[in-house]
Amino acid sequence: MACSPLEQFAIIPLIPIHIGNLYLPFTNSSLFMLLTISLVLLLVHFVTLNGGHLVLNARQFFVEMIYDFVFNLVNEQISGPSLVKQRFFSLIFVTFTRLLFRNFIGMISYSFTVTSYFPFTLGLSFSLSPGMTLLGFQIHGLHLFSFFFSRGVALPLAPFSVMPELSPHSFRALSLGIRLFANMMAGHSSVKISSGFARTMLSMGGITYLAHLAFLSVASASTGPEPGVGISQAYASTTLNCTYFNDAINFHRETAGR
């Protein structure tokens, strides 16, 4: 029996875990996050087994294609010496691959779309954004605060110029989490609603063959763009993370022209 759209996105405790007064259940969200990590590790393991193949097979080509894509993304979005920006390649690569695989797994029937779960996307963004700010302090020290001042502003007007710069910076983590959650929730919800509607109408008697085809076409048309949505959202989130890393590392280049 098919699940409703709301049930598909619900957090369901699978294994209750009690540690003292703490209740930490192993949920379907935890299950699919673990499944995603396992699939990525297995794929990388089989690709790198015995040093790989001189002639690329399908698995190795797929992994190397993702590697080259993220490598070029880091080089394009983060300016500065290669040795500096490639320090963050591993983190960005892991971020992109886990978002990509979790978006794809969410398209499987009766699975759970982890990236449509707002606490997950919010936790992911809030775990990265403070780290970027601390990175900026580590590299630039208190000079990082000059990022919030516009060049040439008189000292009495400085507090008024700080707020327009400080507010977007403070809401970066929130906007990053909301963007990923909203896009994935909207896309998957539309697929589940249209598929459920088509299934309900097909189960009713007295409709013609053309009506059958029409309902199936609606369901297929709504499912078709979802792989593109999953790829684009993983790309957009990773690109924004690269941009925020670039701001933390090279903010003086952005403020030099103000």
Rank of each mutant, 00 (worst) to 15 (best):
I92P: 00
L155V: 13
N250P: 01
S29C: 11
S170T: 13
I17G: 04
Q233D: 08
F118D: 04
L91K: 04
M1Q: 09
A248S: 15
F148H: 12
F69L: 06
L99G: 01
M33H: 08
S79T: 11
G131H: 02
Y110I: 09
G20F: 04
E165I: 08
Q86I: 02
N183W: 08
F149C: 05
D247H: 11
L155T: 11
L41W: 04
L157Q: 13
L56Q: 09
T95Y: 11
F101P: 02
A214S: 10
I15T: 09
P130S: 05
I17V: 15
P156M: 05
I139G: 03
N28Y: 06
T113P: 02
V153Q: 04
S116T: 07
C3I: 10
A10F: 03
L155D: 12
I17C: 07
C3Y: 13
V114H: 00
A10K: 12
V94N: 09
F145T: 09
P25E: 05
A58G: 04
L100T: 03
M204A: 13
F181C: 02
F101R: 00
L155A: 08
S232L: 12
G177Q: 03
F145R: 07
A186L: 11
M132A: 12
P164K: 07
N57H: 04
M1A: 07
V114S: 02
L73A: 08
M185H: 12
S150R: 06
S111W: 05
Y67E: 00
M163C: 06
R258W: 13
F88S: 03
I249L: 15
Y235K: 01
L41P: 02
L216E: 13
I17T: 05
I178F: 14
